[in-house]
């Protein structure tokens, strides 16, 4: 082998990827040729310096990397706990019967009627702004929470993520009482139908249709159905934030 051929093979020599016969040939050449041996040493020195330079950056990036790890684990936990998210009630109607609300600690049978009622309720009360007796005073809200066995801390926890609690009332979804909380942020309104876990199964009912986003999850002491006429991304973000908060 001549020096040119040796130079071409040096990357494979360095990484140990040469087969035995060529490895022996390259080794012998490096032993006998001071120029090629010097070239190899120079490459090794350059490589070491490049690695050292990048290692300095790695130390600087360590905090960012740890933060990334935490963010990814949070997303993984979110994905584990999220049951489903439907793009619209129309799409939901076709799939409602097959959907299960699963939670790690409190498996709950999903009920299509809950979601169709929630969609209808949101359409009438939030989109069409039908007159209702909403509660806004802290004492009134506390009384509603007590009546449904919902912790004030859970209600406040969602607020802590940056969404303002505007008003609340009791409504019935599939014949069962839920606390209907309306949170708002940047002009978008999100209905959260909250119910303490452990209640009896909800009965079947008709579904509905419309251009709404729906999501649900069960976390800790509550199960929540979310309905909004905001874009899908906003609904996803709100759901993510609410889940993480509860």
């Amino acid at each position: 082998m001549n020096c040119g051929e040796i130079h071409e093979l040096l990357p494979l020599w360095t990484t140990g990827e040469l087969e035995a016969s060529r490895r022996l040939a390259v080794g012998a050449h490096l032993h006998d040729c001071p120029d090629c041996a010097a070239e190899l040493r120079q490459r090794e020195a350059e490589d070491a310096l490049l690695r050292e330079a990048m290692a300095v950056e790695s130390a600087r990036d360590l905090m960012t990397a740890r933060d990334l790890e935490r963010r990814v684990m949070r997303r993984i936990a979110d994905e584990r706990s999220r049951r489903w998210l439907w793009p619209s009630v129309a799409a939901a109607a076709a799939t409602l019967a097959a959907v299960l609300l699963l939670t790690q600690h409190h498996p709950v049978q999903a009920n299509p009627a809950v979601f169709s009622d929630a969609a209808r309720d949101h359409t009438v009360e939030i989109v069409q702004k039908a007159a209702r007796h909403w509660r806004t005073a802290p004492a009134e809200l506390a009384a509603l929470e007590d009546s449904q066995g919902i912790s004030d801390a859970d209600v406040k926890a969602v607020e802590a993520t940056g969404y303002r609690l505007e008003r609340a009332k009791i409504c019935r979804l599939a014949g069962l009482p839920y606390m209907h909380l309306v949170y708002a942020k940047d002009g978008r309104e999100f209905s959260v139908y909250m119910r303490a876990t452990g209640g009896k199964p909800v009965p079947e009912a008709d579904s509905t249709s419309g251009n709404l986003q729906l999501a649900s999850f069960a976390r800790g002491r509550v199960q929540a159905v979310i309905v909004t006429d905001a874009p899908r991304g906003d609904c996803l973000q709100f759901t993510r934030d609410a889940e993480a908060a509860l």
């Binding site: 990048m54 950056e57 790695s58 990036d61 360590l62 960012t64 990397a65 740890r66 990334l68 790890e69 990814v72 684990m73 993984i76």
Partner: peptide, 21 residues
């Protein structure tokens, strides 16, 4: 499973970040 993933993959976040930059 998440623990295994953390050991196998999340531990490489620093290298991946360095390369991604």
């Amino acid at each position: 499973r998440e623990q295994e993933f953390a050991e196998v993959a999340l531990s490489q976040a620093g290298s991946l970040l360095r390369f991604a930059r």
